[in-house]
Write a protein that binds this DNA or RNA. Structure first.
Lengths: 146, 146
DNA sequence: ACCGTTGTAACTCTTGAAATTACAGCGCTT
DNA sequence: AAGCGCTGTAATTTCAAGAGTTACAACGGT
């Protein structure tokens, strides 16, 4: 199992918004073109980002505004906005171990902490990168192409 | 998206093998009872563990033997044996960003390293725990029940 | 009032996990 | 050598979710 591509799509969206906002109106159609997918997919992701209060979307006109300074939005914020994982658990535990078995009734207690730690390690790593980093690195890369 | 419950099932299996090996013959039926699932599910997971050279399975008689000292098998070893993630990538990247877009053709280079780092952080955390830890903690927990 | 855009519902396609049934193959045990 | 318990595995079903697509109502500048 893998984490949905919606996450990388969301990061792609933010990058496009920042790189192109002065030159184009960044619409879901425009984004769909860069990401090479369907505009509706983009709109659904934008809705999730809006619900997480990360962006504002203008109806009628179209156009996306980021609500907070880029330096205050981490990859983790985007991840949490996008991944609707139940309880936020990365690891899916088998549902109903047998309570009459000594191992079965204790297995959760044995593993939960360790799995949570592994998940947190990943999430903490995501917190290290902000959208500002992403924007700057994108601009550098594009500039160096010439 | 979540990591399959097969991973926690595999850890559950190892725990049972260690806790019960002197008292019962640990068969896929027995394990299925503790884990509360179907014996065939167990056998498939056992096959994966066998292919990864972690265990040996006796045909005819039934019974599972762990191939290495428990202290030398980490959660990560089990994870890798179980999770058939393509390329081993935790994050699924959107397939085909538009190469004609400056962002589209650079997005992989921008994100790959960061995503890999997040994945590695999680995996390194899994490497910190061995099956020996798991066994000892299980025995402690069970003993403290009485 | 028009037009470009967003918001959403409804549907399809595909994939994969999980569960289940069925049965062949293996190897002790007697 | 025959029986029995167990493993190995194929085939099938069920279910959930991601991804893509079509269609259309709602919004808001021009």
């Amino acid at each position: 199992m893998q984490i949905t591509s919606r996450f990388t799509v969301a990061l792609h969206i933010f990058t496009c918004v920042e790189v192109f906002k002065d030159d184009h109106k960044v619409t879901s159609d425009f984004l769909a073109g860069s990401i090479n997918t369907n505009p509706v997919i983009i709109r659904k992701i934008l809705t999730q980002l809006k619900n997480a209060d990360l962006i504002t979307i203008a109806r009628g006109t179209g156009g996306i505004t980021v609500n907070r300074p880029l330096s205050e939005i981490t990859f983790y914020d985007v991840y949490r906005a996008i991944e609707p994982v139940e309880n936020g658990d990365l690891f899916h535990f088998h549902e109903s171990p047998n309570p009459e078995c000594p191992v079965g009734r204790n297995i959760h207690m044995l593993l939960d902490g360790k799995l949570k730690a592994a998940q947190s390690a990943m999430e903490d790593e995501l917190k290290k990168h902000t959208l500002e980093d992403l924007k700057n690195e994108a601009l550098d890369l594009i500039a160096s192409e010439k």
